[in-house]
Design a protein around this nucleic acid. Structure first.
Lengths: 228, 228
DNA sequence: CACATTAGTTATAATATATAACTTATGTTA
DNA sequence: TAACATAAGTTATATATTATAACTAATGTG
């Protein structure tokens, strides 16, 4: 990495960092390239040397967010790899919520509704999205394959035309995933996602005194259902 | 209602309608007062006679969306009021999904992340949010109070510091709701919410070939858990 | 030290929200 | 019906924004 490339990277990082700060204050729509440039003490158009346009900056932030979340989940999964699958999954799901609350803007960038006027570049963001789901699937696979846990009974009653599966691009390194594991993973994902969304957007607070406790109790219940 | 007020209302409705159309095409951030005015054949500033600013228009759209969803849910609840609570709830939850799919923009306005730069006026939107939750609670109350269904076993294991209840603003016409009912309602809400998000925003890669079937199967499972 | 590349600059075009000041249409009332 | 107040629209303007074009200054290399 040449000296120039190094400085360039520093500048890019500063831009992204200020962008995140800006959105943390005024919401995901308050992102202004001009304002960032001003804060950095340079003129607006200078930013276009680093990001082709506003959407390119947003895409970069989204990819970063995916990576950050994924790596935190992976880290937790690794740290508890020697525990039971249930304990490991529990810790991963707790990390998931923790990350969402600690990085509300990043979470919205990933899972919130599309930014006004912004069309996500699927090609760029999709591979990163898969990385988030991967550790969960891996733990489930461990539970049902290595720990030989029985699949929950309800799986047998899934109506036959219903099929779930991973897109080809996600299947790398996850060769013969069982259909059942994906189904259970999906159920788990929508459970935690529903809870976190409601909490993050303040829909849950009027109804409950301790969201953290609610979340903990519900993921225990979820894992009971999963027969973990 | 005077003649003037009538025409004024028509204009307001046209503005809102065009706003929704615009957002349906370009996302929630593509809302432009100027563009609406142009489409209506008048100058930009004229719109400010009808809405103080952009946020006021957005707030109006959000309140409308809440009302529309709530009234559809109420209608379904009323139509199936003579059936079992389970059947009635099932129909209401199906309506919920149907509405979300038919009105993606409205759904995003309500439950998506806050629009960039837009700070929801809690005072204006919170009461409307309660109206969406109300029919679900009413059906659950009917099930456990009138139909005398037993509460699911897991309720007994809720950790004691955890308390659920309705905020005062939501409690109108719902005087002494059981804590348990609210808890179950909350669980139901986050379930369907998570599923709809999953389907609508396709954030996660595992693909479902028949989302409708998935949803149906999962709400049956949900109601089994609720012991309905 | 010459020179190509990179990184910045100013100027400008096109739009956006929003306000101010002015004008026209509309309905009411003396 | 004429006078008048109000409502609804206009144009002009201030201040942002994104983005492009054209130019200049800095930087590192041969």
């Amino acid at each position: 990495m040449t000296r120039r490339e190094k400085f360039r990277q520093i500048t890019i990082d500063e831009i992204k960092s200020l962008a995140r700060l800006q959105m943390a204050e005024g919401g995901t729509a308050s992102l202004s390239l001009n304002a960032i440039a001003r804060q950095m003490g340079m003129s607006g158009p200078a930013l276009y040397r680093y990001f082709e346009n506003r959407d390119a900056l947003l895409t970069a932030l989204i990819v970063d967010a995916y990576h950050d979340l994924a790596s935190e989940l992976e880290e937790t999964a690794a740290r508890f790899a020697d525990q039971t699958a249930r304990e490991c999954l529990k810790q991963v799901l707790l990390t998931y919520r923790r990350w969402a609350l600690d990085h509300p803007v990043d979470f919205q960038l990933i899972f919130g509704n599309p930014i006004p006027g912004y069309q996500a570049e699927e090609a760029l963001t999709a591979p990163s999205a898969g990385k988030v789901f991967a550790p969960i699937l891996r733990i489930l696979e461990r539970a049902y394959r290595l720990e030989n846990r029985a699949f929950p009974a309800f799986l047998a009653e899934i109506p036959s035309p219903l099929r779930v599966g991973l897109a080809a691009s996600l299947q790398e390194n996850q060769p013969d995933l069982l259909q059942q594991v994906v189904y259970i993973g999906l159920v788990g994902w929508y459970h935690i996602h529903g809870m976190i969304m409601l909490e993050l957007f303040q829909h849950i607070q009027p109804l409950i005194n301790e969201p953290a406790l609610f979340y903990q109790f519900e993921i225990e219940r979820l894992m009971d259902q999963m027969n973990l």
